[in-house]
Computed example of a mutant assay.
Amino acid sequence: MPEQWTVRDISRAMLPLLLALSTVEIASGLVLGSIEDILLAKPALLVLVPVTIGTAGNLGSILAARLSTAVHLGTVEFEPTDDTLAGNALATVALALSVFPIVGAGAWVLTELTVGAVLGPLDVVLVAFSAGAVLAVLAIAVTLTATYAAYRLGLDPDDVVIPVVTNTCDVLGVLVLFGVVAVLL
């Protein structure tokens, strides 16, 4: 990593990444557009979309920040037996499994209070919980991959990993949420 960043260095490192991530976000919007009818027919799912993708991105970002700090401190080894990696991954899964049912319950309550729920509360909680469990695993995989890639390429993980994780989780969040809906409902 450079000792001193210049605007040129920052632009050279980040512009290609930001362009690629913009394309990823467009893909996420196209997927949402293709399932608009489902969202309008089941308003609780419409409420779940931004909360699910935001929560998945937040979980990945928390993990990314912790791993980035560990990289800077030299306390992480990218090995399957690394306790730092395992502990942080386990904490991410535990947090997801405790937060996503609350997200589902909140989405159902909000929908019930505003437009009347089409889906039952257990259905919405089960969808949120299942999507959250899958997204936690995917967010961990994306975060570990992005952190390792940044480390190997000599980029600062603080600059690279969180944008990659949040943008990727946006797309994965939409895909996983509606994959779970297709399977469970």
Score class of each variant (00 low, 15 high):
L48V: 04
S61E: 04
F78G: 14
P163M: 08
S68R: 09
L144R: 06
C169S: 14
L110N: 05
A146E: 10
A146Q: 01
D158K: 11
V134H: 10
W5R: 15
A27T: 09
P101H: 04
A86I: 10
Y148G: 08
S22H: 05
V7G: 11
S11G: 13
A65R: 11
F178T: 03
L73G: 12
G154A: 12
N167M: 08
A136C: 06
T6I: 05
V142A: 03
S28K: 15
T23M: 10
V24L: 14
G54Y: 01
S130I: 01
D82S: 13
A133S: 07
L32H: 11
A70M: 12
R152D: 10
F100A: 15
P80E: 07
L73W: 05
C169Q: 13
P163N: 11
V164K: 15
V142W: 01
A41Y: 05
T111I: 04
V176F: 05
D83N: 08
G120H: 06
P121I: 00
I53H: 01
S11A: 11
A146P: 12
D37P: 10
L185H: 08
T92L: 06
L19P: 06
L32S: 12
L144H: 13
T6Y: 08
I38E: 06
L46A: 15
V124K: 01
L90H: 10
V134N: 01
L97T: 14
T147I: 04
T145L: 15
W5E: 14
M14Q: 14
T55Y: 02
Y151R: 15
L17A: 04
L18M: 12
L19H: 07
D123Y: 01
I35M: 03
S34I: 03
V165G: 09
E25R: 12
T52Y: 02
V125L: 13
T166I: 07
V7L: 14
A136H: 02
F78S: 01
G173H: 01
D158F: 06
T145M: 15
V47L: 12
A96K: 05
S34Q: 11
T84H: 09
Q4V: 05
L67F: 08
A27I: 08
G179L: 04
M1L: 05
A44K: 02
S130V: 03
W108Q: 02
T92I: 01
G179M: 02
V165Y: 00
S11K: 10
L184H: 06
S68K: 11
L113V: 08
Q4N: 13
G57V: 02
I140E: 07
A150C: 10
T69H: 14
D159F: 07
Y148P: 01
L155Q: 13
Q4K: 15
E77F: 02
I53F: 06
L177D: 02
R66N: 09
C169E: 03
V125R: 00
